[in-house]
Design a protein around this nucleic acid. Structure first.
Lengths: 188, 188
DNA sequence: TGTGTAAACTACTGCTATTAGTTTTGCTCC
DNA sequence: GGAGCAAAACTAATAGCAGTAGTTTACACA
């Protein structure tokens, strides 16, 4: 039997590796177990099941996203900060195509850890908006708007939704400038 | 045996009904067959399998979305047209929560029917942008931007991604005005 | 009325997650 | 160093899924 020396972290590691290499759909307990050279039921010693594994993937990915966005905004303000954040967001989605989607699923309202990680990632944008003098409900509207655009772009890009062969980098820049223009107009 | 009188259309109808009532994940051949009071293998007389059924759902939904968007823009131009289109898009996603996601999956490049339906829906936005004097590559960038924002908003909203309890209607309006402000600035 | 086709069926395979119960491993404590 | 114990692996099984092969039946049409 030669104990495999698994742990929750190692199981989640394997799942994330599979997701980013072969796509979200490839993440099955059978596949994870096979990659770890273990029988499927053995995974249950470390995770609560497929649902639990997915939550764990989401949690890790959201944490990482929050860190990446915070990092991107360091030392920058207003338009520069938002450009950097948007670029980092898109890059993150690209680099984590298999797990990025997990950051979107609504957290269980009772799952405070999940909720906290999610709102920490959002907080970065809210903070930058404060630099424009945008706060309160307006900050929430603006954050939702920016997040929608950033997520929508990455989602469509990763799904191959931009049919025509025109450089998506340029389109992304265009979109960001469009949003920045809108912000500067609304705060004028 | 009492022939059930199925057809491809009836099978797809049932699948769409299930998707919009119980969610995309509830669409299994077993469930569709059960709803139609038939054994699962009988479905193969009318569809090529689960993949084919999904493609068929996507095709129907994209067609419908194209019609809805075109309808929304009738008799309107520029900002008014875009406001109406955005509202219609969001409403469509809301009303078709189970099948909306099917409109996003990249069509098989060899599937000309699918490609045609997708580009017809996009065309509506391109046409409105022409009213601003936006054309060529710029029109593509702008269309991608608007589509990203619209899709992103609906996607996050349907997934319950907007945690805080602040009226999403207002946020949506805010986002649209932000985009319109950006357009007016870029075309000034 | 007879015949052929299309549409239903049964029976089966192989995949998935999950549970129950069993064996083995390796650490801890005497 | 050996005894005991908990954790971690296992085997065996169930139930639900998609899909295939081969069979039967219903129905339209000659």
């Amino acid at each position: 039997m030669a104990r495999a020396g698994l742990s929750k972290d190692l199981v989640v590691d394997a799942a994330i590796r599979i997701a980013n290499r072969d796509g979200t759909g490839a993440v099955t307990l059978a596949r994870v177990a096979s990659d770890l050279e273990v029988r499927t039921p053995s995974l249950y010693n470390h995770i609560g099941g497929l649902g639990d594994l997915r939550r764990e993937i989401a949690l890790r990915t959201i944490h990482e996203l929050g860190d990446v966005l915070a990092h991107a905004a360091v030392g920058l303000a207003r338009d520069d900060a938002l450009r950097s954040i948007a670029g980092a967001y898109r890059q993150f989605a690209f680099d984590h195509r298999g797990t990025y989607g997990a950051t979107l699923a609504a957290p269980d309202p009772a799952d405070s850890e999940h909720l906290a990680a999610a709102s920490k990632a959002i907080e970065v944008i809210v903070t930058v908006l404060a630099g424009y003098g945008i706060s309160g409900d307006e900050a929430i509207h603006a954050t939702r708007s920016l997040r929608s655009a950033m997520h929508g772009f990455s989602s469509l890009e990763l799904d191959g939704g931009f049919g025509i062969d025109l450089d998506p980098d340029q389109s992304h820049e265009w979109m960001i400038e469009l949003l920045l223009g809108g912000i500067s107009r609304l705060t004028a």
